[in-house]
Structure formats: structure tokens, C-alpha cells
Design a protein around this nucleic acid. Structure first.
Lengths: 210, 210
DNA sequence: AATATTGTTCATTTTTTCTTGAACAAAATG
DNA sequence: CATTTTGTTCAAGAAAAAATGAACAATATT
């Protein structure tokens, strides 16, 4: 129940404890992200991989593993972590096709994952002159990452706060012996909302320095 | 994909927008948590419900709905939110059986849910003299709630930080043209860890005041 | 305008997570 | 020490979430 510290490991298994660098890629069909091809640290070929192995270098593999793991702390899907990790660890902007091919994702996952990351502000579009495909890079400013996440996933909950408190208040039967207790609970929740209203801006502000 | 603001609604549907108080309880078999029985705001009968309807009063129903919703923001299962919501909205300590019956949960869910909440520090055991069953109440101190959550779900990730950075560092091929870029990325991540190391204590401290 | 390229949507399938309930363990009672 | 009461565990089923891939839309190219 409730994996406190989930350890996702479908595409890539981090070498964090072993020292080895690469494990396997148990995909439905596809091949491994690292490959037979021994040491190949070319950058990113933004067009087509020609013969056998479009792959990730060891740094990219580890980065992907790291972000999959970190994102899982927020219960975000593996594909999201993979995409962000790849973009984060790659100097050049990548296209949808690049992402899809290198991570062996479906087109749908790559598209929706990129869209989600973009809407959060975790991925930026880069316009390359003379190139039709959209390209993307990772946003690495903690301020933007944090505020995007908080804005999309937390703020909406807080905005409903006052309304929710009213509903709770209205649900109290004044004739009930527990009415007093219930009102005190509402006060408790109101305090929590205050707390979040105070602390979220602080977090966003502090994040600006990193 | 990724419900930004999920709206769980299996047992209880909040009346937040409509003004009505209670909807339905589409359980596999069980009945509604509120009942035919019109207005019944008795407290909590800590022993056995005699005839037709062990139920929640309107305040409890709304509280359960609120916490199910709030917990879903953290991707916690509905049963957890229900249990916490019930304990939060009930003056008297409740036993495992109380919880199970009132929320129409399985024994397993109630037991594991309570255990998880206890381990987090969100639920306290209350020893009642002369009563064998363990009884529980909700912990409402934000400091305890927040620090328990952060301790269990976030801290472990941060503790691995240095190790993960080493792994990343080791994965860089110094001969690669991207080695410089990769090192800068590692610096970036190191900064993030610093940030969390700074901000988490601040959060815990601020929470102490609520 | 026909064709080719690029990107999104969404019904299905697959995977993961949650819930259930019965079997089991532990502790107290008579 | 047999029995009852209380609580946990875990295999199996149900539900929810995520991934897939083919159909579709939108845009650019010739």
C-alpha cells in the first residue's frame, strides 16, 4: 500500500547502488535505450538515426532515471519523468520525434507528455530557423518549475477554500450537541488555509534564488 | 491524462456547488452513508448500531468529501481521505470497527488505512480505560501533519541526493563534447537539493504556528 | 489543389493501484 | 486451555491510470 518511496524502473534502472551503468529496457517490443554499440557519446542527431541504435548516452540514462524517480514522489507518470529527464540532459532542443524515438515511447505519450510539461512551464518551445518541427528544451529555473507546479496542482484547491468552508458551516445542525465541536474543526481548517496562503508565496519567492 | 484537480466521488459527493447536501453511494453492494432516515444528528455510538442505519451526519459527510478531495491532490487513495475525514469530524475516538462500519469499507482497507495514517502521525491512538478495542482520533496539528508527510514522502528522496549526484557525475564521459554541459546540469540539480534543504525546515517551522 | 509533413485525439489495451474478504495471528477472557 | 475478541496480512478481483497506435486535423510544400 502507498509506496512511500516508489522506485520506478521500467525503461532505465539507475546504477545508484551497484556501480554498473546500464540495465535493460523491458519494453513490449522495443530495444534497449542503451545498446550493443559500446561507447557512443555523440550529441543529438536532430534528424534520422541511420542504422541500428538511436540511443542515450550514460549521462542521459542516469538523468532519465533520476527524474523518473523524483517525479514519482509527486505521483507523476513515468513517461513525464522520462521526457523531462531526456530534455534536461540533452544540450540541443529535441523534436517530438526525437523524444519519441529515443525514449521508445508511443507517439501519443510523447505528445501528451510534452504538452503537459509545456503547460506546466517545465519545457520550453524553441523555434529553430528553417526547421518545421517544433523543438523543445527543459526549463531549469526552479522558480518557474515550482510555481508552475503549485499553480496547476495546488492553487486550485486553495481557491475553493472559502467556498468549502461555507459548505461545511452550512452542514452543521445547530441543534446538535456536537455543533460546538464542529465549529472548532472548521476553525482548524480555516487556519490551514491561512497557512498555505502564507507559505506558498514564500516558497515561490525562495525558489527564485535557485 | 493527469487530472490536475481530480474530483473523487465514490462514497460522498460534496454539495459544494449545488447546495444540496447529499448524493449517493455507488458501492459494490453497500448502502448510502446518509440514509432514508431524515435528520439524525446523534453523536457516535461507540458500540453497536442497533437497527437500520449507522450513518454519518451531514457535517461528517461534508468533512469526508473535503478530505477525500484534498488528499487526492497528493494522490492518496480515497479510503485514506475517508478515514481521516471521519475521525476529523467526530468528537469521540473511533475503533477500527466503527470506522469500517460507518464508511462501509472492507476490514482490510480500514486496517491498512488506519495504520498508514498512524505511521504518518495523522492519527493518534487513544487508550480508553476498560475498553479492549483500540480507538483513534485525528491529529490536527498542522506541524505534525506536515512534518509527518514530508518526513515519509519527501525526505527520503533528499537523503539520496548526494549519492545520486555522484552517480550522475560518474556517468559523464570526459571525452564527450557534452561533458561541460552535463557538469553544468549537475550543478543545477545540486542547487535544487540545496533549495529543498533550506525550504523544508522553513515549512515545518511555519507549520508550527497553525 | 493535391501531397507530404507534423501534431493531436481518443478508443483500446496494458499496467498499476486499490479494495475486498477470508485466513491467520495475537491477546484476552472465562 | 478452549473460546472469543481484536487486528493484520495477502491473494484475488475491481477500479483507475497510463500507454499505445491508428485515425484525424492542421499546416506547409510542390
Amino acid at each position: 500500500m502507498l509506496p512511500i518511496v516508489p522506485l520506478p524502473m521500467r525503461l532505465v534502472e539507475s546504477s545508484i547502488s551497484t556501480g554498473q551503468v546500464v540495465k535493460e529496457a523491458p519494453l513490449t517490443k522495443g530495444g534497449s535505450l542503451s545498446e550493443p554499440v559500446p561507447q557512443d557519446h555523440r550529441g543529438v542527431q536532430s534528424k534520422e538515426a541511420q542504422s541500428p541504435a538511436p540511443l542515450l548516452n550514460t549521462f542521459q540514462l542516469e538523468a532519465v532515471a533520476l527524474f523518473v524517480h523524483a517525479f514519482s514522489a509527486l505521483s507523476l507518470p513515468r513517461s513525464i519523468g522520462e521526457i523531462y529527464g531526456l530534455l534536461f540532459s540533452t544540450p540541443e532542443p529535441l523534436s517530438l520525434d526525437d523524444v519519441q524515438q529515443r525514449l521508445q515511447l508511443s507517439r501519443g505519450s510523447a505528445s501528451e507528455g510534452l504538452r503537459w510539461l509545456r503547460s506546466l512551464g517545465a519545457v520550453k518551445q524553441v523555434y529553430l530557423p528553417g526547421i518545421r518541427k517544433e523543438h523543445f528544451t527543459a526549463e531549469t529555473s526552479l522558480r518557474k518549475l515550482a510555481s508552475g507546479y503549485l499553480r496547476d496542482r495546488i492553487d486550485p484547491h486553495l481557491e475553493n477554500g472559502p467556498n468549502r468552508l461555507n459548505v461545511l458551516e452550512a452542514s452543521i445542525d445547530p441543534a446538535s450537541p456536537s455543533a460546538h465541536f464542529e465549529r472548532s474543526r472548521i476553525g482548524q481548517i480555516a487556519g490551514w488555509y491561512q497557512f498555505f496562503g502564507k507559505v506558498l508565496p514564500v516558497i515561490k519567492a525562495l525558489a527564485g534564488k535557485f
